[in-house]
Design a protein around this nucleic acid. Structure first.
Length: 303
DNA sequence: GACCAGGGTAACT
DNA sequence: AGTTACCATGGT
């Protein structure tokens, strides 16, 4: 059995807190006390794995400690998941060039990376997200996993004494579940939406490889054929589950933030989205995430 | 108890 | 094409 840690030192443009707590993913938990300044420890459930990871301050960037992880697992799974092969200084420069006012906002949230998440989990998670707060989304994702997903093996090394006990349900597991079983996760009126998404993926009407071959606009339209997937949820799936960084999801927060920064008063979400894509181009998705976390921290527009 | 939440649908004009 | 009530559930 593996029992070594894999350590990555002097990682730049990355913080576990910024990346995980910025509202892009939901199946994770902070496991440290928060007492030691600059130290963070998280448990993350992704596909058929559980990652236990720590972050410490380092001389140039941060030090990441992947607990009980061998290098091959980092190289084949976690490097891609955390988007660590990408140079974010280039992305930040592009955004600041498009709007110099975002320099401070980016600096404040400099450790955000857009995760490369599992397509199906991202699709279902953001269907759940509609008209819900982030802690509630996490709760329903956990409930669905616990009720319908494959339970963790008791011999699993990284299984911590946390609230989690199962992986996110597979396409088959959700397809085979009844609407009542889905509803038991407290997803409410979204249960038929989840069932429709699972059915369309199960039968191949919605297919990850097919979506990857389409232009962003075509892929968005395809995703919106799922009952319960509108413009905003489709954009989240494009950005967080399909790597489309030219997608710019506009939720209630982004609406308020962009109205505060760029518009005079009430503005339709469609206009805000078009404006942002025109302004930020292929880095719009990154800009959106820096702005989202900034808006949440400062509670822009909620006084 | 009213109001809101990383919205979307259906039923209206 | 642009509004509006309603949708479960939990938090303030």
């Amino acid at each position: 059995m593996q029992n070594r840690n894999f350590i990555l030192d002097n990682v730049k443009d990355f913080h576990l807190y910024d990346t995980l707590e910025c509202g892009q993913c939901f199946h994770f938990q902070r496991t440290d006390s928060g007492i030691n300044q600059g130290e963070f420890e998280y448990e993350i459930v992704y596909r058929d794995r559980v990652l236990h990871i720590k972050e410490e301050p380092s001389t140039n960037g941060v030090r990441l400690i992947f607990i009980n992880t061998e290098e091959w697992e980092y190289q084949t799974i976690w490097k891609e998941y955390f988007d660590l092969e990408r140079d974010y200084s280039v992305i930040k420069d592009k955004i600041i060039k498009a709007d110099p006012r975002l320099e401070e906002i980016i600096e404040e949230n400099s450790g955000i990376r857009i995760l490369n998440q599992d397509f199906f989990e991202t699709l279902i998670s953001f269907i759940i997200s509609q008209n819900k707060q982030i802690p509630q989304i996490k709760q329903v994702v956990n409930n669905l996993s616990s009720e319908l997903g494959t339970k963790f093996d008791v011999t699993m090394i990284n299984r911590l004494s946390s609230e989690f006990d199962a992986f996110f349900p597979t396409v088959d597991q959700l397809y085979n579940a009844t609407e009542e079983e889905v509803r038991a996760s407290k997803c409410g009126f979204r249960a038929p939406y989840i069932k429709d998404a699972a059915e369309k993926v199960y039968f191949g009407d919605i297919n990850e490889d097919g979506l990857l071959r389409l232009e962003t606009d075509e892929a968005r339209e395809k995703l919106m054929t799922i009952h319960g997937v509108g413009e905003k949820v489709a954009n989240c799936v494009l950005l967080f589950g399909l790597g489309r960084t030219d997608a710019f999801p506009v939720d209630v927060w982004m609406k308020r933030i962009c109205e505060h920064l760029y518009f005079d008063g009430d503005t339709p979400k469609s206009e805000i989205e078009a404006f942002a894509i025109d302004k930020f181009g292929d880095v719009a998705g990154y800009a959106q995430q820096y702005l989202f976390m900034y808006g949440q921290k400062h509670r822009i527009g909620t006084k």
